[in-house]
Write a protein that binds this DNA or RNA. Sequence first.
DNA 1: GTTCCGCATGAATCGATAG
DNA 2: ACTATCGATTCATGCGGAA
Lengths: 281, 281
Amino acid sequence: METVNTDIYQGDCLEILHDNFDDNTFDLIVTSPPYADSRSKTYGGIKPDNYVKWFSPISNELLRVLKPDGTFILDIKEKAVNGERHTYVIELILEMRKQGWLWTEEFIWHKKNCHPGKWPNRFRDAWERLLQFNKSKKFNMYQEEVRVPVGEWANNRLKKLNATDRIRDNAKNDSGFGKNVSNWLGRNTVYPTNVLLMATECGNRRHSAVFPKSLPEWFIKLFTKECDWVLDPFVGSGTTCEVAQEMNRNSVGIEILSENYELAKSRISQFQPKLFEEKAE
Amino acid sequence: METVNTDIYQGDCLEILHDNFDDNTFDLIVTSPPYADSRSKTYGGIKPDNYVKWFSPISNELLRVLKPDGTFILDIKEKAVNGERHTYVIELILEMRKQGWLWTEEFIWHKKNCHPGKWPNRFRDAWERLLQFNKSKKFNMYQEEVRVPVGEWANNRLKKLNATDRIRDNAKNDSGFGKNVSNWLGRNTVYPTNVLLMATECGNRRHSAVFPKSLPEWFIKLFTKECDWVLDPFVGSGTTCEVAQEMNRNSVGIEILSENYELAKSRISQFQPKLFEEKAE
DNA sequence: GTTCCGCATGAATCGATAG
DNA sequence: ACTATCGATTCATGCGGAA
């Protein structure tokens, strides 16, 4: 088993990317940047009105370091400001398209156990946008890797195949329908949709990750293969890099806050003994 | 029990609203306008690039007829055009804010039984935007009316599912649509989230509605009380008005296509005998 | 009267083919 | 080159008939 690199940098992602990484380096960028008005100590408390101006140089730099057939997944949700959903996220989409990004898809992260709360004018916010951007229409996507178990209805379907559809299969052998039926036989899994149902990991006090490990894991499976390169420019406590390492992908994480940086480093290094064991074999 | 009006108009909603309705008439507007490039025979097949220009006069008229404390729910989803998600929906949000609308919230309609299909670059689209707009920050919202059950009851239901089902169906207790409310008596209830889990009613051959009855029902419960006024300017086969009538709300539906108009009329009139019975009592 | 099972039907999208 | 039409792909649901 080939070993992979897992590098955590401390500093501003704009500078670090500019100084250390060539064009077309990464196969996947997946990140959850600081939201507007939060983490004020570290990013100067970006005001919602200034969010697009703050983020667009970064998205431009990410465009540079992403491979032409790579993918950028941006986990983001606009705040409610003054009783209204702010528009900085949708303005950012328009701005990034001007930079050359293609807005390929918007996945929904449905957060099962989101933070409780009640307000007079709105319910709990149980979802986030997972915006998919690409540099070209031809990008790598390994759909087979993320198949999900098939529903109950398939049991009936398979019973039926034994009786009726076998005959139709023979009759229309060349039409392509027979090929279709053979795909169904023995199939226990189906392709997922663009709605992701994942629980937040709220129990871990030592490092509160913005997203659960299952989230970067899903996109790493879908958009990379082993030994590909993954980047998280706002890696926080290191979740993305930890997952990438476990999945045998090279990864780079950047974090500006020293406390998070140290935490991320320690999580990565804990993985080393296992690597040594495997190398020994 | 007071009787309510249910009026279906045939024609262009812009003209009909202008000619027949005063300012500040409706408590709730809920609609699903024709999407870009669909229903081409009746709406001239609005091109995605022209969508905002086509819809903004209508949204402006809706702003006029909505009461100051009313709510407008817009069910919409952008098409994939040339491998990319088109931007007309997010551009429409920006345009409507210029008209004076407040973009209060975005609910997600998670459609479990979305249209099948497989493509090399995307999965099935399983969600739609339910954009909430208001005229002022103070709007009527009856949150108690849409509480959903939780706890033992939901847990027991999940136990009955096998391991495979649990992976797929673990959102079952999120928002209990289409359930018999009498089953909830004595149960603990909680407020729902802004993610709505509803199946489309595709099996109904007599009238294929774009949204299931549970969708307008939920918003009518949440944003109106009895004898309030509900408007659907693109009422199609009449789902919104039928639900409003059953819930004892006044409603107005507008439909341009005569075939749909007749269908909507017949659905409404079928409800009359029950009304007469109640009046007789 | 229930429950079970087969079947048609969707706000879809892509790539190829035709004009 | 650019637009319009068509075939292939795919899965959860409600309905109706059967057991």
